[in-house]
Amino acid sequence: MSKTTVITARLEPELLAKLDALASEIDRSRAWVVAKAVQRYVEEELEYRAFIQAGIDSADRGELVSQEDMEAWFEARHRQAAAAE
């Protein structure tokens, strides 16, 4: 069995009731649901932060799109969509 650590968290009564209802619905423990929620949050947050850092790194390398190029791209897409109607 893998080693785990116990943590505590304070939840509003309404959220705790929802947590318990979900755990009951999926036939899992409250701890299991909380661990999965924390795992999902951490993975998504790390992915989001890596995405932001990639954008910052790209900008630092000068890999930017000018306002004029962006407006031209948008206008071309807008014209293309209007022509398809």
Rank of each mutant, 00 (worst) to 15 (best):
E85I: 07
V34W: 00
R61N: 04
A50V: 02
T5K: 15
A9G: 11
A35G: 07
T4I: 06
G55R: 15
A21W: 03
T4Y: 04
D69R: 13
I7A: 10
W73P: 02
R79K: 12
M1Y: 06
E45K: 10
I56V: 10
A17S: 13
A17F: 00
G55L: 11
R40P: 02
Q53S: 06
E12C: 05
L11C: 05
E25A: 15
E71Y: 03
A21E: 06
E12H: 13
T4P: 02
A83S: 04
F51D: 15
A59R: 11
L11H: 12
A37L: 15
Y48T: 09
A76V: 09
E47A: 14
Q39Y: 12
A21G: 02
E68F: 00
I52C: 09
V38N: 01
S58D: 09
I56H: 03
S66K: 11
A59L: 03
R10W: 11
T5P: 00
L11P: 08
A35K: 07
T5W: 11
L19K: 01
D60L: 03
S29E: 01
A9F: 06
Q80G: 10
Y48R: 15
R61D: 10
R79I: 00
K3Y: 04
A9Y: 04
M70P: 00
A37T: 12
R10G: 14
I52K: 15
W32G: 01
A23L: 03
E43Q: 14
S24G: 11
A82F: 00
R77Y: 03
V34Y: 02
L16P: 01
L64H: 05
R79G: 00
I7V: 10
A23V: 08
A76P: 05
V33S: 02
I7S: 07
L46M: 13
E85H: 11
Q67L: 13
E45D: 13
A17Q: 14
F74N: 06
A21P: 02
Q53N: 09
R30H: 07
A17R: 13
S66Y: 12
L15I: 15
E68K: 13
E12F: 06
K18Q: 11
S66F: 09
T4K: 13
